[in-house]
Design a binder for these strands. Structure first.
Length: 993
RNA sequence: CGCGGUGUAGCUCAAUGGCAGAGCACUCGAUUGAUAAUCGAGCGACGUCGGUUCAAUUCCUUCCACCGCGACCA
């Protein structure tokens, strides 16, 4: 007892001690924690803990059940988990039912490829079975990966768009659209392979270089040319068009010009031609149109210039068919097509190429049955969607001169025919990129075929318009008449509803509105097998189509029991109500529609199919959260279905996130080497790192990810972890129930730290409230690094380490630490699900503590704000900056090493002096020096001057502070007066043997 | 080409019509009682051309770059 060694003194220091390891080892600890959560069924425990609370419904947008997850899908789900967990911790009952989008082309194509030639002999049901299996497998893998991210939800019972109930609901919702008169059947041009005789989806088309005949053709103006310009009165006027598909000319019904471009009418012989002014020279040169009225060569003489709008709704004649060709205006018109081989050339070549390769006249030949733009503008002008080409690519009999010929074979004949007729001005071979069939590699055509539509602009009224059917695409129904924007139209309702929705970020509404304003009718039919069949029947005798809600519901009930496979297995008769007869002709023989529904119709149905069928959910959802691509996708299709079902948007709020890009902001490509695969991050660093990355970035923008960025995130994680660890370590032996100190009895710095905590709590809660997780993260991170680590903890060390364990001042610090650690765990919980729970477990023993932090609520900020304390301490820390700077200078000058070697002398005046004087006895602890001397100086109104000297006295062996009183104690000769007192106290607390 | 978004230090984020803040990274230093830690100091930025204003990173405009959606490629 009399021979105390330094080692024994060291033992009287209260160093941090905790089971919370410095090294996270997340790759191992996370799976273990997941296992534990699964064993206690944490998701259900959370639901139970919030039973009866206000619900918060985040409705999951179903990812496509095809490939494995990538960074983007991981981020999407993590953000959803942030929302769910933060809302749950704000007291809501926030159930999560994840979903999967199972039908559709990508899976069918994948299965096609896998089946290869076998597919031809397989019935549709067998192909569907293969698709179903593929989807089931993919979603199983995705589920595993999503769970690994720490996302809690009903993973054992997700919603699948291919489940019986879902398919039945999808069919019923189609019936709902029918019931409300939105559904019609019409023609629409689609990619069509004349070799395979099938429609192709966009994804099945590939572009290759192709040589087509380029032709310049003159269309005689039928309207009075004086309507364009008086100078043209009485002249023979022609509009010049250019096309590389002469075979579409028999289907020409119009010519489109740009309303704002300038057009010129110029003389060639005794004729007058109209082209875009900008292309005048190029056309004249190409077609050699330099004849004056006298037949002599001359530069083109322009008779009039006018905007394209002047031509609107005038008429031309078809160059050889007795039919009008309507002049229309459209914004899609460009000045000249370009042979686009330049992408493969270098820039210099490309520039040269570009100027010489311009072709076109600024007046676009328009065949609504053979082009998408042509279709859209044709519809706007009420033109027929005319397609005199059959499924094999042959002209139908009504096409004079060319009937029965294949369109590509007819091309040169049409060119020759036009030359003979004198309507052809010029022709040449033209190489350009042209769509080809991905399977047979033949060039494809655009061809109007019958499709099912949902009208955006009117309730059509009649269930199905009677269409003039002649087997194959030559659909003569004219659904464009009486086209008016009704109050009850889907578009009007959608535009109304989006105003009621809260958009995060706010510009989402603008984007949605622009999208809704411009979108054409929704084509919901697909000529495929992997999806929900369009539940429509045709009378075998009179072709009457039956699309009745009652019949559709009858079919849906069968789907409910047997899935939509029933449509492919059963005869029409078995699917229809018993004894159903045709209302038109009384026959009872039926055929089934072979088209399936667009997958966007599937996923759009989810709000009704899921939210209304599960007791824990409700319609509408509080929030949808997806990437910006879903404005046109799921946000849109869900809105349509919501309106059809309930006249309401299915969501109260919509959150959108950006894309995951690389460090340069470029798109990530699997092959580009810049991709950040989530599974690798998890394996190397842990899911919490991935989650923290999501939390650290502003997801409203694109989210950059790279090695360096993840390294920064990992650094940040370590700082958070160490900060928590330090708090936990100093809570060793602290029992909050027994040892807590009342707020008034704490030191000011403790109360300051708790006030700072309150501020962070407010910031974090507010940020969570508006889904700004990065704001919360940065506030928490700043709190940990600056407030805690650099300031509070550093100041606290002396008190925590050297005071007797049960000293009230030490207990006060621990009381604050306990509150801080508890609050940190709660606030970090939505973001760092694993680590926060680990912190939670290592908090001081408390019998009332919940099993998991995820069962807890966010901390509340206390209402009391001590303004004076806050401003005093703000100023004190500003002064501290100056002191630290001066200390650094002294360190460089080798006056001191550690700051405890220093004595600080401050000469202050005015308010600075008042403040320093008031905290006179605290200053050495705040500045972490051994001695502080404050004196009043006379200079200036307010300010202070810092001087650093070596500390006086000797260094206390125990607390490392310098003191002139070291050695006063006989018992503890190497120790300062503070430590003598502390050691006496320790002695009393636990007398040594 | 159209619609929408973004552009602040190497990285991630702030703020603001009046000297642009933070943390990390980097450099240097201290410490060895948060130690594969901790503390300090230093370094470092408003994409571009104009305009409005006493004053612009902030408001308007041009252009550039990047991202998404859509259209085009006759």
């Amino acid at each position: 007892m009399s021979t105390e060694t330094p080692l024994d003194l060291k033992k009287t220091i209260n160093l941090p001690k905790t089971g919370f390891s410095q090294k996270a080892n997340l790759a191992q600890s996370e799976p273990a924690r997941l296992k534990k959560w699964s064993e206690i069924n944490l998701y259900q425990l959370i639901r139970q803990a919030r039973a009866g609370a206000d619900k918060f419904i985040l409705h999951d947008g179903p990812p496509y059940a095809n490939a494995d997850i990538h960074l983007g899908t991981a981020m999407n789900k993590i953000l959803k988990d942030f929302v769910l967990k933060s809302r749950s911790m704000m007291g809501h009952d926030a159930p999560y039912v994840p979903g999967y989008d199972c039908h559709g082309l990508p899976i069918e194509l994948y299965v096609d490829r896998k089946l290869g030639a076998k597919k031809a002999n397989m019935p549709a049901v067998a192909i569907r079975r293969a698709c179903r299996e593929h989807a089931a497998q993919a979603l199983k893998r995705q589920t595993r990966d999503f769970q690994r991210l720490g996302i809690l939800g009903e993973w054992d019972n997700p919603y699948l768009t291919m489940s019986n109930h879902y398919e039945a609901e999808t069919a019923r919702l189609f019936g709902r659209f029918v019931e409300r008169g939105y559904v019609y059947k019409g023609a629409r041009p689609v990619y069509w392979c004349i070799h395979d005789q099938t429609a192709l989806a966009e994804a099945e088309v590939e572009y290759h270089q192709h040589t087509s005949p380029s032709v310049y053709v003159k269309f005689p103006l039928a309207s009075d040319p004086a309507l364009i310009d008086p100078a043209l009165a009485g002249r023979k006027v022609f509009v010049l068009i250019w096309t590389t598909t002469p075979w579409t000319l028999p289907a020409n019904l119009g010519i489109t010009v740009h309303p704002d471009y300038q057009y010129s009418a110029f003389e060639n012989g005794d004729e007058v031609y109209i082209v875009a002014s900008e292309l005048l020279d190029a056309v004249v040169e190409k077609c050699e149109l330099r004849k004056g009225r006298d037949g002599e060569s001359q530069p083109p003489k322009v008779l009039a210039r006018f905007p394209g709008a002047r031509l609107d709704r005038l008429e031309c004649r078809h160059p050889w068919i007795d039919r009008r060709s309507l002049l229309m205006v459209g914004e899609h018109v460009t000045l000249g097509g370009e042979a686009d081989a330049e992408t493969e050339l270098d820039v210099k070549d490309a520039r040269e190429k570009q100027s010489s390769s311009k072709a076109g006249t600024g007046a676009v030949h328009t065949a609504p049955g053979h082009g998408h733009d042509d279709f859209v503008i044709g519809k706007r002008y009420g033109l027929e969607i005319y397609c005199p080409v059959d499924h094999a690519g042959h002209f139908t009999p009504e096409v004079e001169h060319f009937a029965g010929q294949s369109v590509f074979d007819a091309n040169p004949k049409i060119v020759e025919f036009m030359r003979e007729r004198g309507v052809l001005l010029f022709t040449e071979s033209f190489s350009h990129r042209y769509p080809h069939c991905w399977r047979c590699k033949n060039p494809v055509i655009f061809r109007a075929t019958p499709q099912w539509f949902i009208s955006m602009d009117q309730a059509v009224g009649a269930v199905v318009e009677t269409i003039e059917k002649d087997e194959d695409g030559r659909d003569r129904s004219n659904f464009t008449e009486n086209f008016s924007e009704g109050e009850t139209s889907l578009r009007a309702a959608a535009l109304r509803e989006i105003e009621r929705v809260k958009w995060f970020p706010s510009w989402g509404e603008i984007r949605m509105r622009n999208m809704l304003k411009g979108r054409p009718d929704w084509c919901v039919s697909r000529q495929r097998v992997w999806g929900v069949s369009i539940p429509v029947f045709y009378c075998a005798k009179c072709s009457e189509a039956v699309a009745e809600p009652a019949v559709i519901n009858h079919v849906a009930d069968i789907f409910e029991r047997e899935s939509s496979d029933a449509w492919f297995i059963k005869e029409a008769r078995e699917l229809l109500p018993a004894g159903y007869e045709c209302k038109q002709c009384g026959a009872a023989e039926w055929t089934k529609e072979t088209d399936i529904l667009d997958v966007w119709f599937d996923s759009g149905s989810s709000s009704v199919a899921v939210l209304e069928s599960r007791p824990e959910l409700r319609w509408p959802a509080d929030v949808y959260l997806e990437g910006g691509d879903q404005f046109r996708g799921w946000f849109n299709s869900s809105l349509m279905v919501g309106i059809a079902a309930h006249d309401r948007a299915p969501y109260k709020a919509v959150i959108t996130h950006g894309w995951t890009v690389d460090a340069q902001g470029k798109e990530m490509h699997k092959s580009g080497g810049n991709a950040v695969p989530p599974d690798e991050v998890i394996k190397e660093s842990g899911a919490d790192i991935l989650r923290l990355w999501c939390a650290s970035s502003n997801y409203f923008d694109d989210m950059r990810s790279s090695k360096e960025i993840l390294q920064r995130v990992t650094d940040g994680y370590r700082k958070l972890r160490n900060t928590a660890r330090y708090a936990l370590g100093n809570l060793h032996g602290f029992d909050p129930a027994r040892d807590s100190v009342a707020h008034e009895e704490m030191q000011e710095v403790d109360r300051w730290a708790l006030a700072e905590l309150d501020a962070v709590i407010k910031t974090v809660r507010a940020a969570f409230d508006i889904y700004e997780f990065h704001t919360a993260y940065h506030a928490l991170y700043r709190f940990c690094t600056v407030t805690l680590s650099a300031r509070y903890f550093d100041i606290l060390k002396d008190r925590l380490y050297t005071f007797a364990p049960r000293h009230p001042a030490r207990r006060a610090a621990q009381t604050a630490l306990a509150r801080i650690a508890d609050a940190l765990a709660r606030m970090l919980a939505p973001l760092l699900v694993f680590t926060a729970d680990e912190i939670w477990e290592n908090l001081p023993a408390d019998s009332a503590r919940l099993q998991s932090v995820h069962l807890a609520l966010l901390p509340e900020a206390s209402d009391v704000m001590d303004e004076e304390l806050a401003s005093n301490w703000k100023r004190l820390f500003e002064m501290r900056e100056d002191v630290l700077q001066t200390l650094e200078e002294a360190r460089i000058a080798k006056v001191i090493g550690s700051s405890l070697d220093a004595r600080v002398e401050i000469a202050a005046t005015g308010a600075s002096y008042e403040l320093l004087d008031r905290y006179r006895n605290e200053l050495r602890y705040i500045f972490i020096v051994s001695q502080v001397e404050v004196t009043r100086s006379d200079e200036g109104a307010d300010g202070f001057v810092v001087k650093v000297l070596p500390a006086e006295g000797a260094k206390c062996e125990r607390c490392w502070n310098y003191s002139t009183r070291v050695g006063e104690s006989e018992k503890y000769p190497s120790v300062c007066e503070r430590c003598v007192a502390a050691l006496d106290e320790i002695e009393q607390e636990s007398p040594r043997e």
